[in-house]
Simulated assay, not measured.
Amino acid sequence: MAKQKFKITNWSTYNKALKQRGALTIWLDESAIVAWTEKTTPEQRGQPLHYIDMAITTVLMMKRVFGLSLRALQGFVDAIFKLMVLPLRYPDYSLISKRAKTVKISIKTPTRGEISPLVIDGTGLKVFGEGEWKVRQHGADRRRVWRKLHMTADSATHEIICADLSPSGTTDAQALPALINQTQRKSREASADGRLRYPLLS
């Protein structure tokens, strides 16, 4: 089934949403700021600060999210601290490399390999917009707009692989070809509604 196209009428809101995709918000808890290092100043000259495990795991999470190298991450975090006017220092990249082996952190990486089986399910979505506002304000009788969101997941890891939005009457079987095209991973079988199974060639 070909991918559905929808006409955009609220260009102002749509344009703002596209800009918001690039927005960056960083929030640090007060307790984290206070406890960033165990000692505010080293006891001896030249002695490095001792950073708590929370500081190490925080920057490692940022490394994973933004896909930065350790050196680039140091510049990135230092720039954030400067913009936020925080009296914090980023641990040296060499220290991060060493401490990463000792701290306990679980960062889920995208799964690769074959999916067996691929699970498909769909749910209805009610579309809100100008029409719905008119119904509430004026009580006019208006046909409600619905769409159907189809998602595929790896049954072993529960990882959501891809999703597709279609008209409300589209079945899982009809949405399957478009979903498979997005998957980009091999799968021998797809399961829908816990009962229907579709053999796949790719």
Rank of each mutant, 00 (worst) to 15 (best):
P117L: 06
D53Y: 06
Q184S: 14
Q44H: 07
D53R: 08
K5G: 04
K108T: 15
W146C: 05
R64Y: 11
L68I: 02
K3T: 09
Q20L: 14
T123L: 07
G22D: 08
D121F: 02
S116G: 06
E114K: 13
G122Y: 00
I26L: 15
R64F: 13
T57K: 02
W11F: 14
A32Y: 07
A100R: 13
A72Q: 15
L49G: 03
K3F: 05
V77W: 08
P117E: 10
T123S: 11
L176V: 02
Q182M: 12
V34N: 02
K16M: 04
R185I: 04
T170W: 03
T102G: 07
L73G: 06
I26E: 10
K82P: 02
F81Q: 05
T152P: 01
L176M: 05
T157F: 02
R112Y: 13
G75S: 07
W27R: 14
H158K: 11
I180D: 00
A192T: 05
L201N: 13
T170R: 00
T109S: 15
A173I: 10
D121W: 01
I105K: 01
T57Q: 00
D53C: 09
T13I: 09
K101C: 08
K134R: 08
L95S: 14
S168W: 09
S94L: 07
I180Y: 08
L95G: 03
G22R: 02
W36T: 02
S106G: 11
T9P: 02
T109D: 12
F76Q: 08
R144G: 02
I120D: 03
W11A: 10
T111P: 07
K126I: 12
G122V: 03
A173Y: 04
K126T: 13
K82A: 15
V65E: 11
T41V: 15
F66N: 01
S31T: 14
A140Q: 12
L28D: 06
N181V: 13
T171A: 02
D78V: 05
K108Y: 12
R185A: 09
D141C: 03
